[in-house]
Design a protein around this nucleic acid. Structure first.
Lengths: 230, 230
DNA sequence: AATATGTTGATTGTTGACAATATAAACCGG
DNA sequence: CCGGTTTATATTGTCAACAATCAACATATT
């Protein structure tokens, strides 16, 4: 028995349709470049075509879809060059966030972060030892999310999450996540140390270096994948 | 007599309606917190209400409007705390862009920037001497835009421009643009020198310092405005 | 007078029909 | 068989009508 939510948070059908389209895109049911057929989606979801249109229109600025007049909406295709740009942006924003987190730790505004980061890193070490890749990956996401949240800049987190999501439109082509866990984990430790020490500059540099090296690791994988295709 | 545009770039009515709503918001005809009445707008624009809905929905992620289920769309009200967050973000992205521009100057990818920056700074000096504030402001925008474009990261420019636009939702409350032209101009010179010298680190630091000091100057003005209101 | 309840009108959300445009299929000529 | 043109079909864009929700106002109760 579900109680109906009351008030501002209640979703319209169009909002629910949007969430479903987002899910289909991020989970790969709708692939990069694929066309969003309004009538198909409306029948699939059991709503009118107009409602699907509203949902799609609301994705206009999301980076997930491209709206082309009279031709429809297509899942955005993220090129390698775009991925590079997104990595650079992501690095700048993550660096800014870690610096802000370090500052807030230093002023006492942020109190629980050090302990939470330490727990997370312990768990990542465990996942590394038992070679549980999926667990490591989830903890990796948690690590980044904690730092983004600790920056106290909600707008930065929204943009950061959107960038990550947009980058997944490239990954969906079959590339696996680049993983050099030992290196990645060591970089996490450096970031956490700088942040918990309240050292803005060190946090900023370590965070940016971590993302850029992640990109380098990613490019190595992308390079290999190209050879496989040829 | 308006010529109809042909091809992929041709705008739908909903796209034109969106552009008009954006103009009304950024030019202050629709003020922060104001409700967007679909029927009023549709009569104003000579299109159906559904078309206005599509236009408004397409602004969902723009930062300009807040969509509230069953209550409608409201021009976003940017708080001072949000402005601070936006300044921080803007600084990080502008810093990243100036570093990238410096790198591209250093590798020869970007060839015309040094000359263009020099021309712009000359003109800003002229505007400073003749105390033409509007001219200085336009040149200031041009300076920033040139650097954002020279970074070769279109996504960064989109996000940067959106952030600037969103910040204007606060300015619309009557605050005038903080201006200390001599200081601002000197900071522009430092940025231009670092970029044209291909010095990434110096460009990054100078750019971020420039935006943060712009925020400091802005806060001084905001502080004064508060006293006026009390 | 203050508060609670009911009613009405305004507005938002959804749907289906029609118009406009793009795409696919069929047709024709060389 | 191929390329160009015409026709048919599919899809997108717009509109208007109906349903659902909210806000404002009127009335009843304490």
């Amino acid at each position: 028995m579900k109680a109906k939510l009351i008030g501002v948070g209640r979703a319209t059908l169009a909002q629910e349709a949007r969430a479903e389209i987002e899910r289909m895109i991020t989970e790969g049911e709708l692939t990069a470049g694929e066309k969003l057929n309004e009538l198909d989606l409306s029948m699939l979801m059991g709503v009118s075509r107009g409602t699907v249109r509203e949902a799609i229109r609301s994705l206009a600025d999301s980076g997930l879809v491209d709206l082309i007049a009279n031709r429809g909406a297509f899942v955005h295709e993220t090129t390698l060059s775009e991925v590079q740009n997104l990595y650079e942006l992501r690095g700048a924003i993550f660096a800014m966030a870690c610096a802000a987190a370090a500052r807030r730790v230093g002023t006492g505004e942020e109190r629980d972060l050090a302990a939470a980061l330490a727990v997370n890193i312990d768990k990542m070490e465990g996942a590394q030892e038992t070679e549980e890749l999926a667990t490591y990956y989830a903890l990796n996401i948690e690590f980044h999310d904690m730092l983004m949240a600790a920056a106290g800049n909600p707008k930065a987190k929204v943009i950061y999450d959107n960038i990550k999501r947009e980058m997944h439109l490239f990954r969906r082509k079959g590339l696996s996540i680049a993983s050099n866990i030992a290196r990645s984990l060591e970089e996490h430790r450096v970031i956490a140390d700088a942040v918990t020490a309240g050292n803005e500059a060190a946090a900023r540099d370590a965070a940016n270096a971590h993302i850029q090296r992640g990109f380098d690791r990613y490019m190595i994988t992308a390079g290999r994948s190209r050879e496989t295709e040829k």
